[in-house]
Every structure is written in structure tokens, then in C-alpha cells.
């Protein structure tokens, strides 16, 4: 990551209303030069609207959007140095692959031989050399995806926007494309803004993530920050699985009745007689349900305060027989104080 003082994208108090609906509500945001930035959130959270406003398909009701310091809030899409990879790819069905890729160059009146040279270059980048003469309808979903990427990159935009581009692919292909996207981003060095509702995808690929909820940004941070220190119950619940503890139980454990979150894998399952080590807290309960998942086992423990906690343990030595026999037994749960994450609220 460079330390350029000018952010690639800056939102200043940006709002977008559709009638009475506040799709985006007073958002402030900075995306740094050259980073892989994800906008994560459930559908209707405002992330796609933000993307569309950066691209210029939508305009803010109020506030400004800056692209490398320049206010682009009211520029039409064709005057912004930003390109988009669409969710449905939006390839032009009447043009072949090479013409699709070269489209941005054609409308800028680059001559034909140069256009074709650069289209070939892009085809190589996305590993589709030799596919130039095909029509989009003759390609598989994954191949169309790559063509859409090549078409958006050929103009060397300052920022590349990706609108849930992997949503339509099957799991295997999606995982493969995640790796490939990341490596292409590192090679071309362009700022990527990636919109997704898939938290795993965001955690895998991003340098930083903004979590959207109800038109506002709940938290911005690196994947580790977002995962380890969710700033709100929403983030804790939306990114990964979290146990939320508040009220009396919280007061006994932390001295405050403010709600906190604890990740299932941070909790250890122990014998009712064992004592917590230094820096650990403990809570008693009974195992209500056990799900054996091969790599690990998931336990649902009903604790004293009537709160159900999810606990995940790796199956290091145990077998399915061992873990399933735990069901119904009394247990004592331990976790480190450092892993207690106040979520406020």
C-alpha cells in the first residue's frame, strides 16, 4: 500500500434517497490508492448504491464524491476514469470477445491495430488467449466473467469497480476466481472496489473492508480487525458467527453489563471441575447439541444465564464417537479476557 496522501475515493457526507428510502445515509469513506477494498453488507444495505454513485450511474442526493481529489459527483459515467465489472457481465451480445474488450478504446478513437493489440494483451492477462473471435454466447460463465474483467481493465482506469462479479459462478470456480482476481489486482496495481454480500469472499481478498448496514457504514477495517474486533452487534453477527453476551452474565464476567461478543473458536470446552488459568474467565453450562463437521465440531451450550453459546473445537484427537457422547453433559466454558470484544449497544 502506498502512502499517497490523496485517497483514490473519498465520500464526503454522501446520501442517496429514493423517495423516502434512505438508501445511503450520510456516508463518509476513504479508499486508499492501490488497495483492494470491499464493501460488504446484506442486500439493501446501500453498498451497491455507493458503487453506482462512484461509477456515475446514480448521483448523490447530497454530499460529494472525490476521485483522486477531483469532485466527480456530477460527472457522467463516460467522463470518469473508473470502470465497472457488472454482476451480469453486461457483455455486448452482438460483438465478439475482442470487440467487447476493445470497446472502450474504440469510442476513444484509438486506431484499429492498436485496439486489437491491446485486446490481445488483455486476453492474455485473463488467460483467454485465442478466444477473441468468439461471441459472448459461446463462452462459459467463468469465461464471460474474465472477458468482462478484461474489458474494464483495458482502459487502465484509476479505480476498478466490481459489483458482486462472482455471484453467478459455482463454488469451485468462485474460489478459483477469488485467487485470480487478487493476483491480477496486484499485477496491474489498480485500486479495486469490490461489492459483495459474501463475508468469506470479503475476508479472503480484501486489504480493507467496509461493512454496510441500513445505508450507513458500521465499520471499516482490515479483515482481521473486522473479524476480531467487530464494532457492533451487527458486524459481529454478519461477519462470521458470534456469541453475544450482555446483562447479568456480562456483569459477572467483565464487571459491566455492556454487551460483548466472543467468537465460538475462542471458547474452550472443559471439565466442570477444572479451574480457569490466569487471564481466563469461565461460565458453566450443559451441551444441548453437537454437530460433527469433520474438520471441527460445533457445540451448542446452554449456560447458566439462559444464554445459548456456540462453541467450535478442532477435531485434533477426538473422533466422532467421542464428541457425540458429550451431548447432555455438564461443561465449563473458558475463554481469554483478551478475546472479549465490547460491541457497544
Amino acid at each position: 500500500m502506498s502512502n499517497s496522501p490523496t485517497p483514490a475515493i473519498r465520500f464526503n457526507q454522501v446520501s442517496r434517497y429514493f423517495g423516502d428510502v434512505k438508501a445511503v445515509d450520510q456516508v463518509n469513506l476513504e479508499v486508499r490508492d492501490g488497495e483492494f477494498f470491499s464493501m460488504l453488507g446484506p442486500s439493501g444495505s446501500g453498498k451497491t448504491t455507493c458503487l453506482r454513485m462512484i461509477a456515475g450511474f446514480d448521483r448523490p442526493t447530497s454530499g460529494q464524491i472525490f476521485l483522486y481529489g477531483q469532485d466527480v459527483s456530477s460527472l457522467p459515467p463516460y467522463e470518469r476514469d473508473v470502470n465497472t465489472v457488472f454482476q451480469d457481465y453486461a457483455l455486448f451480445p452482438h460483438m465478439n470477445v475482442a470487440d467487447n474488450i476493445a470497446y472502450g478504446l474504440m469510442v476513444k478513437k484509438v486506431n484499429k491495430s492498436e485496439r486489437m493489440r491491446r485486446a490481445d494483451e488483455m486476453l492474455e492477462l485473463v488467460r483467454l488467449t485465442g478466444f477473441g473471435k468468439r461471441k459472448p454466447s459461446q463462452l462459459s460463465g467463468g469465461q464471460r466473467q474474465r472477458v468482462a474483467l478484461a474489458r474494464a481493465l483495458v482502459n487502465h482506469p484509476k479505480v476498478l469497480l466490481l459489483d458482486e462479479p462472482l455471484g453467478a459462478l459455482d463454488l469451485k470456480l468462485r474460489q478459483q476466481m477469488q485467487v485470480e482476481l487478487k493476483s491480477i489486482q496486484q499485477r496491474v496495481g489498480i485500486t479495486f472496489i469490490f461489492v459483495t454480500h459474501d463475508q468469506e469472499e470479503a475476508l479472503t481478498m480484501s486489504d480493507r473492508i467496509a461493512v454496510f448496514n441500513e445505508g450507513k457504514i458500521s465499520q471499516v477495517g482490515t479483515p482481521a480487525e473486522i473479524y476480531e474486533r467487530p464494532a457492533s452487534p451487527f458486524v459481529a453477527g454478519f461477519v462470521g458467527t458470534s456469541n453475544l453476551i450482555g446483562g447479568e452474565v456480562a456483569k459477572r464476567l467483565t464487571g459491566s453489563d455492556k454487551m460483548f461478543s466472543i467468537r465460538p473458536e475462542k471458547i474452550h470446552l472443559g471439565n466442570v471441575n477444572s479451574q480457569p488459568e490466569a487471564g481466563m474467565v469461565s461460565l458453566d453450562g450443559a451441551v444441548r447439541d453437537v454437530v460433527y463437521l469433520g474438520l471441527f465440531t460445533r457445540y451448542l451450550v446452554e449456560t447458566e444465564g439462559g444464554i445459548d453459546l456456540m462453541v467450535v473445537e478442532q477435531n485434533l484427537k477426538t473422533t466422532s464417537m467421542d464428541v457425540l457422547s458429550v451431548k447432555g453433559q455438564k461443561v465449563r466454558l473458558f475463554w481469554h479476557k483478551d478475546h472479549i470484544n465490547p460491541v457497544g449497544g
Binding site: 450511474f57 459515467p77 470502470n83 465497472t84 453486461a90 455486448f92 469510442v107
Partner: peptide, 23 residues
């Protein structure tokens, strides 16, 4: 018609008239 085609064209640098002509 796929709605995003028009947006894609504008996004790639074509103005409204070019978008009409080519897409």
C-alpha cells in the same frame, strides 16, 4: 435487453450518442 449494457457502454467511455449507435 440486458439493462446493464447501456450502463456498461457509458462506463467504458461512450457518450449517449455513441451508446445509441454502437449498443
Amino acid at each position: 435487453m440486458q439493462g446493464s449494457q447501456i450502463e456498461a457502454s457509458m462506463d467504458l467511455g461512450a457518450n449517449s450518442f455513441q451508446t445509441f449507435r454502437y449498443v
